[in-house]
Write a protein that binds this DNA or RNA. Structure first.
Length: 383
DNA sequence: CGTTTTTGACCTGCGC
DNA sequence: GCGCAGGTCAAAAACG
């Protein structure tokens, strides 16, 4: 009810504006419309070189220094990765992001992971500088929070930032159901955008995960969701089957509730594809093996196209396939019993696959077959 | 009646 | 120091 009210008002707003996410890019809808493009990009050497850390690049400006975050392993990989695999920072826009697989006009979606906005990036930089201080202050700050209403905060205490993870979703629904329960605690008008930004907090006690939801002023149909923090509890919605891993992975360190790239089908005809860095995902996979007896989830990453990260003009999209399986279709229809909004189809990025694409593909196939249409796994070259 | 949303006020950080 | 913008709080209202 209330949500619908809000929805309607924001939808109204959405008709008016443009221009709030200059740093965010959309990918042409057909750029990933085929399995071919979906899976081949990651193995392209040139792309590989430049794209391997696309997501990482983006996250590198995030608060991966937070020792309690799932970015720990991720960061380790970052640090230990051969320098040659790390793209020169100068070539990577600060606000790059991953966008993938938009599908249908109404239910198409895209994901992005980024620090989302200039402010966020600034924050992250500051975080990096002050992370040690923050670590020490964490407990103190919790106490501080309780007092803060009545007493002024310490001036020298910088606000703690959790790792952020943002993605864009093409959806009519602002607040996508990701399986967790959120309580709205604030709403603010955003400068240069007619759309308000909503602030949500995980309702679980002791779980400080926050979520910001705002609608892109560039494209009102796009909802930008920014997660901040790490869930410390299982997902309250525990769908059976492949998606059962969601709560676990989330509890094990998935940023703010989703475990990787995936598809969220909003109840109202929206889907969201989101992506996490491969290292992160591998970490989670390992964790899953340790903790989970549930079926594997489909796990596919999608490599981020170079042009997306570097603000380049996208190359002409590949010719449309004879009958490309609409990604949105499988994401919203292949698991009818699963809460659509909580569904997650994971896309695995494969930055380190120059010579092992076959085995990786095979592995992915095993993971993917849980939920992707069989034609999705056909080797494009065999077609 | 418990939970969630709304909303104005307040706080903080930053740029000028 | 001041103003602005983002973020948060909490009382009140709405909802189930």
């Amino acid at each position: 009810m209330a949500e619908k009210k809000k929805e309607s008002t924001e939808t109204e707003n959405s008709l008016k504006n443009t221009a709030a996410f200059p740093n965010q890019m959309m990918i042409p809808e057909n750029s990933f419309s085929t399995p071919n493009s979906l899976f081949d990009i990651s193995c392209d050497d040139e792309h590989h070189q430049k794209n391997s850390f696309g997501f990482i690049d983006m996250l590198s400006v995030q608060d991966f220094t937070n020792p309690s975050s799932l970015f720990d392993d991720f960061l380790q990989n970052m640090i230990t990765a051969p320098p040659s695999l790390l793209p020169p920072t100068s070539t990577v826009p600060e606000y790059s992001e991953v966008v993938n697989t938009p599908v249908t006009p109404n239910s198409s979606s895209m994901s992005s992971a980024s620090s989302t906005e200039a402010a966020a990036n600034e924050d992250q930089k500051k975080i990096t500088e002050t992370v040690e201080e923050e670590d020490e202050d964490e407990e103190e700050q919790d106490q501080e929070k309780t007092k803060k209403q009545l007493k002024p905060k310490k001036k020298n205490q910088k606000r703690q930032r959790e790792p952020r993870f943002a993605f864009m979703t093409k959806s009519e629904i602002d607040h996508l159901d990701d399986g967790y329960r959120w309580r709205k605690y604030g709403q603010k008008a955003v400068k240069n955008s007619p759309f308000p930004r909503s602030y949500y907090r995980c309702t679980s006690t002791a779980c400080g995960v926050k979520k910001r939801v705002e609608r892109s002023s560039d494209d009102p149909s796009i909802v930008v969701t920014t997660y901040e923090g790490t869930h410390t509890h299982p997902c309250p919605i525990t769908p059976r089957g492949a998606f059962g891993l969601m709560p676990e992975t989330a509890a094990l360190g998935g940023v703010a509730g989703f475990t990787g790239s995936g598809v969220i089908g909003g109840g109202g005809g929206s889907t969201s594809h989101f992506v996490i860095p491969p290292q992160m995902f591998h970490h989670q996979q390992q964790q899953q093996q340790q903790y989970s007896t549930l079926p594997r989830a489909a796990t596919i990453f999608q490599q981020q196209p170079y042009f997306l990260r570097n603000n380049l003009t996208p190359p002409p999209p590949p010719p449309p396939p004879p009958s490309p399986p609409p990604l949105s279709n499988f994401s919203t229809t292949t698991n009818p019993t699963f809460p659509p909004a909580a569904a997650a189809t994971l896309f695995q990025e494969r930055p380190f696959c120059p010579s092992s694409s076959t085995s990786l593909l095979a592995r992915d196939h095993g993971l993917l077959q849980d939920m992707l249409p069989s034609q999705m796994f056909k080797d494009p070259k065999q077609e």
